[in-house]
Design a protein around this nucleic acid. Sequence first.
DNA 1: CCGAAAGTACGATGACTGTCAACCTTTGAT
DNA 2: ATCAAAGGTTGACAGTCATCGTACTTTCGG
Lengths: 119, 119
Amino acid sequence: MSYDGAMDTDRVPPHPDMRTITLQRVLEALVDPVRRSIVTQLCAAATDVKCGGFDLPVSKSTATHHFRILREAGLIRQYYVGTARMNALRREEFEEVFPGLLDAVVAADRAPVHGGASR
Amino acid sequence: MSYDGAMDTDRVPPHPDMRTITLQRVLEALVDPVRRSIVTQLCAAATDVKCGGFDLPVSKSTATHHFRILREAGLIRQYYVGTARMNALRREEFEEVFPGLLDAVVAADRAPVHGGASR
DNA sequence: CCGAAAGTACGATGACTGTCAACCTTTGAT
DNA sequence: ATCAAAGGTTGACAGTCATCGTACTTTCGG
């Protein structure tokens, strides 16, 4: 819970208070496949991941854009470690505000096809 | 579960097979506030509602557009009764494909503000 | 048969947004 | 101090989408 010597940055991007986030923003964030992929990968990683650590089909500047949307929607938290920007899911906080939503979306994303498979 | 004598129309709009619906389409449908309002009202009504029976802030032609998006996403079923087009949530079918998703979104829509109210 | 009611279809339009390249900033190491 | 690495910022551009008005179709009632 404590970043020892490396915590010497004031470059902390603005994060929304969880009491101010809206379903509208959340859905706008999750409707994009790239952003949903970020959330899914983050969910599967079970640990914080730096921006460059994701497998994304877009340029760096576009990726930055997507990370900001996710952050402003209240879905992820970002902090610097050296030149790297780390990303973490705000799972528990989010769960309190919109119970079941994140799990449902992530689970749904995992199962694009269901029930009667090829058959 | 059975439409008795009134079922005399062949003008049945195309509905997607539940095995072909995608999370992408579903989220694209639910991201619009008007469409989410339709789903919410339909959920609260607990009964089929005709298109004109909704309280919507858009014109009739725009409403038609939204109903189609919802139908093509697999969220609602539509059928004619006279000149009226009835709308029904495909709750159970949808629940099987994307468990918890609809409930989470509807519940989230009901609670736009939480905890610390107006101040 | 005629008219009203309920929707649908069709463009047209304005706004938003995902995308990129180019350039700049910060950090850590040489 | 200098350089490379990691991102962020800033326009610009293209595609998509919600919206509307108008015209059309279908159904039901006189």
